[in-house]
């Protein structure tokens, strides 16, 4: 994430509360993972080439690669964000909004009628 997010005003937590960095990292990473799942699901469905690439386990077909890749992206993002924000406070409102938008997009992209018009 960009530096402006990290330097944005700190949340309204009480003085004794934990910094919000680790929670924000987990929330944002889950949003990214959900969005990645939606994007990869559409990509795997549209492209014959990607369909082949995503077939990590033949009996399950492209679903194996789509979901495994999304989970790997989610975990890598979570680890990286956690490492970066582990001791800092970030703009919780902005991070939460971004994460929820990504989640909503991910949810929409998994819905076949929406994916079909893309």
């Amino acid at each position: 994430m960009n530096a402006s997010v990290e330097t944005a005003p700190v949340n309204t937590a009480s003085p004794t509360s934990l910094t919000n960095g680790p929670a924000a990292a987990a929330v944002l990473a889950a949003g990214i993972g959900s969005f990645a799942l939606g994007v990869l699901a559409v990509a795997g469905d549209k492209s014959a080439l990607l369909k082949g690439w995503f077939t990590f386990y033949k009996p399950t077909g492209p679903l194996s690669g789509v979901t495994t890749s999304a989970v790997v992206i989610w975990l890598i993002c979570w680890g990286a964000l956690e490492w970066r924000w582990r001791k800092s406070s970030v703009s919780a409102g902005r991070i939460s909004a971004i994460a929820l938008v990504l989640l909503a997009l991910g949810l929409m992209l998994t819905f076949p009628p929406i994916a079909d018009v893309l």
Partner: peptide, 9 residues
């Protein structure tokens, strides 16, 4: 104490 993150969770 983290209202916005709590709502997101």
């Amino acid at each position: 104490n983290h209202r916005q993150l709590r709502a997101a969770v």
